[in-house]
Simulated scan of single mutants.
Amino acid sequence: MAETMTLIRPPVEAAVSAAAVTPELQFRIEQFLYLEAALLDERQFRQWLDLVADDISYVLMTNTLAQTRDRRKGQQPPTTYIFNESKYQLERRIARLETGMAWSEEPASRTRHFVSNVRVLELVGDEVVVSCNYLVHRAAKHRDHHDFIGTRRDRLRRVETPAGWELVRRDLELDQFVLTAPNISIIL
């Protein structure tokens, strides 16, 4: 199993000091995240896949509710994966969307990806760990509109490409506890 980043929502003090994150670095990271969102919204999935590292781990786990008394004891309900994908699995999902035979994407969903509250949490060599909030609005059929809102933690690696970064790991957490959408056929 792939390495696990332990906290999706790190405490505020866990962020890298503001002095270590230059405005230029912050800008470059945000521009990469905005490019990624635009490619997904424009259904340019192959170009998005080019931004993904070969050793990607792309994870969405269930969100759980824990009673205050259980949290104090350090007890958490078990979490399970909604998806835990590698680059091969992401490529297969994109290939399926390209066939026009994916019933959940006929007609194709329109999406809008929003990214905010981007914080650099860790700087290690050519890699950065970034925390941000996201909202993905999906509109498919006449009455099939869903919002996916949550927080995520991304590990980015600096590379010599026009984008400047590649996505190495993404851990997503949904704010909702019950998934009301019939499927998650889009890329969050």
Results as ranks from 00 to 15, higher is better:
residue 19 A to F: 10
residue 34 Y to G: 00
residue 135 L to M: 12
residue 148 F to S: 08
residue 169 R to A: 12
residue 108 A to H: 12
residue 66 A to C: 07
residue 19 A to Y: 08
residue 89 Q to S: 13
residue 85 E to T: 06
residue 134 Y to F: 15
residue 158 R to A: 15
residue 76 Q to H: 14
residue 38 A to I: 03
residue 157 R to C: 07
residue 97 L to G: 13
residue 142 H to M: 15
residue 95 A to P: 04
residue 137 H to G: 02
residue 83 F to W: 01
residue 171 D to R: 10
residue 111 T to P: 12
residue 65 L to V: 14
residue 139 A to G: 13
residue 13 E to P: 03
residue 29 I to F: 02
residue 164 G to T: 09
residue 172 L to P: 04
residue 71 R to Y: 02
residue 172 L to M: 13
residue 37 A to M: 03
residue 142 H to T: 15
residue 57 S to T: 11
residue 54 D to S: 03
residue 187 I to S: 07
residue 111 T to V: 11
residue 178 V to P: 05
residue 114 F to R: 03
residue 145 H to L: 15
residue 4 T to A: 06
residue 62 T to Q: 08
residue 152 R to F: 02
residue 92 R to V: 05
residue 69 R to G: 02
residue 74 G to Y: 07
residue 173 E to F: 11
residue 88 Y to S: 05
residue 117 N to Y: 00
residue 24 E to C: 00
residue 147 D to F: 14
residue 71 R to E: 01
residue 125 G to A: 12
residue 171 D to H: 13
residue 86 S to Q: 03
residue 11 P to D: 14
residue 102 A to K: 03
residue 157 R to I: 06
residue 12 V to P: 04
residue 101 M to K: 15
residue 6 T to C: 08
residue 103 W to D: 14
residue 154 D to A: 10
residue 152 R to A: 05
residue 99 T to E: 12
residue 47 Q to G: 06
residue 1 M to G: 08
residue 68 T to R: 13
residue 101 M to P: 06
residue 11 P to A: 14
residue 147 D to E: 14
residue 106 E to A: 11
residue 133 N to D: 13
residue 175 D to M: 06
residue 145 H to W: 15
residue 54 D to V: 01
residue 53 A to M: 00
residue 115 V to G: 02
residue 112 R to Y: 11
residue 160 E to I: 06
residue 74 G to H: 10
residue 56 I to R: 05
residue 57 S to R: 11
residue 52 V to L: 08
residue 153 R to K: 14
residue 73 K to L: 15
residue 147 D to P: 02
residue 120 V to Y: 06
residue 68 T to E: 07
residue 168 V to Q: 11
residue 132 C to I: 00
residue 57 S to C: 05
residue 88 Y to A: 09
residue 72 R to L: 12
residue 116 S to Y: 03
residue 70 D to F: 10
residue 18 A to K: 02
residue 40 L to E: 08
residue 94 I to Y: 08
residue 93 R to P: 10
residue 22 T to D: 04
residue 62 T to P: 08
residue 33 L to D: 01
residue 14 A to G: 08
residue 16 V to M: 09
residue 72 R to S: 02
residue 53 A to L: 00
residue 20 A to W: 05
residue 70 D to C: 02
residue 155 R to V: 15
residue 44 Q to M: 13
residue 36 E to N: 02
residue 77 P to R: 07
residue 48 W to E: 06
residue 17 S to F: 06
residue 2 A to R: 10
residue 55 D to T: 05
residue 149 I to V: 14
residue 63 N to Q: 14
residue 3 E to M: 09
residue 156 L to Y: 07
residue 36 E to W: 01
residue 58 Y to G: 00
residue 126 D to I: 09
residue 153 R to C: 05
residue 60 L to D: 01
residue 31 Q to V: 00
residue 117 N to L: 00
residue 93 R to H: 13
residue 181 A to Q: 07
residue 175 D to I: 02
